[in-house]
Every structure is written in C-alpha cells, then in structure tokens.
Design a protein around this nucleic acid. Structure first.
Lengths: 183, 183
DNA sequence: ACCTGAACACCGTTCAAGT
DNA sequence: ACCTGAACACCGTTCAAGT
C-alpha cells in the first residue's frame, strides 16, 4: 500500500459516490485494510482532502496569456473546468469554500497574468479573475446533485449545458465591457 | 417547547457557529431537552434544514418588475442577498446544492417575470435569472469561511466587498449586453 | 401528547499492542 | 516500519418505556 493507492481510492470513491462517500473508513475498506492503516500514510482526513484537491486541479488546463483572442481562451477554460469537476460530485462545492477556492498560488498568478495580458488594469485583474472563477464554481455547485442524472430537464426543458453556455457568455461579455470602460 | 422554538434555536446556532454547528443534539441542548424530544416536532434533520432555508429566504427582498431601472433593482437585490446570507456561515453553500438553490417556486417565478419585464425574451429570462442567482450564491459560498473574520484582506489588499461590487457590476453589464443582442 | 434512556449504525481519531 | 483492535467522542436515528 502507498499514498498513491490511498489517493486513487479516494478519487474513485468521489467519482462513484460523491463527496459524501469519501470517508476514511470507506477508503480503508476499498484497500482491504483496517481504518487506522490509512493513518500511517496520511495525517488526517483534511490532509487527504488537500491531496484530492491538488490532484484534480493539477489536471486543469493552463490559461495561456494571449492578446489576440482572450474571450475564446477564457470560454474554453471555464467550460473545461466545469466538465472536469462534473465528474466528481460535490468536489466543486467543497472547493468553493476553501481559501482561493482551492486553486494553488501558481495557477492563481497565471490567471491574473492572463487578464493583464488581455488588457485588464493590474488593479482589477484579480477581481476579473476571481469573478470568472466564482461563477463557474457556483455553477458546478449548482450542478453537483445533477451529476447522477445529467439529462434531467430543468425549467422550461432547459438543460445544464444551456445554463453554463449562457452564463459563461454573460461572464465574458460583462468582463469585456468593464475592461473597455477602464475600471 | 414548539416548532418555532426549535427553528429559532437552529437559526441561532447557524448564526453563531455556522452550518457545522447545527446538529440535532446541539438544538436539543440549546432548549435544555433530550435529543429525541426534538423529533416529536420535526421529522428529521432534513426537515429542520428545509425550515431554516424557508425562513431565511422568506425574509428576502422582492424583485419588483420594473421597466425603468432594472439594473439598479437587480444590483440592490443581489447585494442584499449577499449581506443577508453572510450572517449565516455555510448556509449559502448548503443552499447552492439544493434544487433551484433553495429558492421556492413563487420567488423563482417572480425572478423570471422581473427579467421579462426588463426586456429579456421569455426563452432566456430563466437563464438570465439563474445566472444572477448562481453568481451571488457562488460569491456567498466563497465568503462563507470569511464570515468570522470579515476584515481579512485578500489578494493585493482587496476586501470581500470589492469582489462583490465588481462581480455584481459584471453580472449586470453582461446581462444587459446579452439582452441587447437579443439572445 | 410529550419526553426520557438505552441502543444502533455510522463518523474521525487516539492509543496500546502486535509483527 | 507497517498494521490491527479496542476504545472514545462525536453524529443521526430507532425503539421501548415512562408521565
């Protein structure tokens, strides 16, 4: 048994049963071992959760600073994030409560740089970046319970995909407008 | 003892200790009674949580359909929501995972009507409404852990208030732009 | 009707003991 | 070093019993 085994067992549990299914005892059972054996590789549940968040966000796409078409880049980035986290029910809702939404400092700086390269003033780039992240994490949280029934219709026959598309469009259009106003 | 006593004890616990402090046993202790006594007035914890959500959202402001200045009305509504829920740490993050974010059908219809009266096509009014709600609930969730340290500075000395102001502006500006485009 | 007390099936986790 | 087993302090909740 290794830390990697524990981590992948944890990720499997979240994928199949959602965040509620991720318990220290379930991880141990998954590995055919006593609950306390896990504590030899992992400090506590909080430590395990941090590893899960790190592993997931490590697989995220990189926001490349581009001057020509930042709208398309941001659109693709947000939708990809949404699709990735949809596979781990409840994880997005957990991350949104973490400091900086669970995003590590490096990726945080990349995002700020991206908005600066897109023409946002350095004083508002962090606000713009945080706005985009907050919306998509909110959307992921809203969709958390729909993960097991992805085709469930909502109001007026609208699907989750429609809400995300409209929301991401609104985010980008709103950001560009604020940028052009210079504040 | 009455259902009202239980509900206000629950609300007090969430206000003081956050959503994690709301346990059936804590509610009972608050009322100087045995844990099982609570179950004589309330079916289970889920029932109690539904009552808490209803009580909080009942106190929300009404989105009045106005044609003249819907931007100001929406701005005020979103900021008020944010301020209200900030007093109950973790409640917003809980509600965002509920169907329709815990908003009751009546208030949901009011919101759609509001956007229609603001000139949004009936086919996109629900999308616009959901977008605004999703963002502000996301923002509330992000701020959930800051509730006990409201003056904690963030990136570059920015405060929670700055993020909300920028975000709500971006939401409204983005929505108006999408409306003017007719989609 | 209203409340208690013991008990059960879950958690995370400590601590002592085994190999 | 690596794992087990018993135990503790929490949960929500069932069930039988008291008034």
């Amino acid at each position: 048994m290794s830390v990697e085994d524990i981590l992948s067992a944890a990720l499997g549990l979240v994928r199949r049963e959602g965040m509620h299914g991720l318990t220290m005892r379930a991880v141990a059972a998954e590995l055919g071992v006593t609950p306390m054996a896990v504590y030899h590789y992992v400090e506590d549940k909080d430590h395990l959760l941090r590893m899960v968040v790190e592993r997931i966000s490590a697989g995220w796409p990189l926001l490349q600073p581009v001057a020509d078409d930042w709208e398309a880049e941001l659109h693709w980035f947000l939708v990809t994030l949404w699709e990735d986290l949809a596979r781990y029910p409840g994880l997005g809702a957990y991350m949104i409560e973490l400091p900086t939404m669970g995003v590590d400092p490096e990726k945080l700086r990349d995002g700020i740089k991206f908005f600066e390269s897109a023409g946002f003033h350095p004083s508002v780039a962090p606000l713009a970046w945080s706005f985009a992240l907050t919306y998509i994490h909110g959307r992921i949280s809203v969709d958390a319970h729909l993960a097991h029934t992805p085709d469930a219709p909502r109001l007026e026959g609208l699907h989750a995909q429609d809400y995300v598309n409209y929301g991401v469009d609104a985010v980008i259009v709103g950001l560009r407008e604020l940028r052009d106003r210079g504040n």
